[in-house]
């Protein structure tokens, strides 16, 4: 828990960092659709080269970009081998019992693994270059059309931004409570189910009580300052789209369209 970096955000001055968060989210979704629908070597070469350009422009360290892959490389390996050995297809290379290694299976495995890898990479670029608060505000702004259905979009955005602010405080508090209870002899490391269950109460009860104390103080402060309705509130920093933001959005749309016209081979 001590290594938790909220949202994996890595501050920087790269061109991707400087883009508007709303544009980043829309571009992410466009590139995600392009990566998810790619098929054939030519289309993959196109989208992989585009994503590699985006990654190099983001100037994110390898730790942020590939850190999460270390824990799930097994998942990728299993996914590849399951497809390679069990996919029904022509061109059998090797066969034993229920296992049939085929060219079509290997291509299917590469296809699935590459697609998921690209989606992970894009997600890491988005979360690595966008501050959580910016992302929450952008989400609130992008969800504004839902107001036509009388959904409280601003209130939802307000709750998400408060949640983001609570996370570091609560994680520090949880750590402190855990250490305090361990000092008092709580057996978090026990392998026995009964002891494991007994170790939950001394961690959760104080954490919830102290968290609710924070919530009580914050809501009292908001009420004392006559906080009324999230929809009537204005923002200190009004973000407007720069020409470069529109250019990036148009570029992403063009990339996706170009991929559609590339032959699948």
């Amino acid at each position: 828990m001590s290594s938790l970096s909220i949202g994996q955000f890595f501050p920087g001055n790269s061109p991707i960092h400087q883009l508007d968060a709303r544009i980043k989210i829309i571009s992410y979704l466009i590139l995600l659709a392009a990566a998810a629908t790619a098929s054939g070597p030519l289309q993959y070469a196109w989208i992989v080269s585009i994503i590699l350009i985006v990654v190099s422009l983001s100037k994110l360290p390898q730790k942020i970009l590939l850190g999460s892959f270390r824990g799930i490389w097994c998942f990728f390996a299993v996914l590849f081998f399951m497809n390679a050995f069990f996919f029904d297809g022509s061109g059998v290379i090797w066969s034993w019992w229920i296992f049939h290694l085929t060219i079509a299976g290997i291509w299917q495995g590469v296809n699935v693994v590459l697609r998921i890898f690209l989606i992970f990479l894009l997600s890491n670029v988005l979360t690595g270059t966008t501050a959580p608060i910016e992302a929450a505000n952008a989400l609130g702004s992008l969800l504004k059309p839902l107001k036509f259905f009388h959904l409280p979009v601003e209130e939802a955005a307000m709750m998400i931004s408060i949640a983001f602010r609570f996370i570091p405080t609560l994680s520090k508090e949880a750590q402190a409570i855990q250490k305090a209870q361990m000092a008092r002899g709580a057996g978090f490391e026990s392998r026995q189910l009964k002891e494991k269950a007994a170790s939950v109460l001394p961690l959760v009860l104080p954490l919830f009580l102290s968290a609710f104390r924070h919530a009580d103080a914050l809501s009292s402060a908001m009420e004392a300052r006559c906080y009324q309705n999230a929809s009537r509130r204005t923002h200190w920093k009004q973000k407007s789209l720069a020409p470069s933001d529109c250019l990036v959005l148009a570029g992403c749309a063009a990339i996706c369209t170009a991929q559609f016209f590339l032959p699948k081979l």
Binding site: I162, F166, L170, L207, A215, L218, A230
Partner: peptide, 19 residues
């Protein structure tokens, strides 16, 4: 208060699994 408690519970959804 309901909004703040909801925000707090959302934050706990992130913190509690880590703890």
């Amino acid at each position: 208060k309901k909004s703040v408690i909801t925000a707090l519970c959302i934050a706990l959804c992130v913190v509690l699994p880590l703890a």
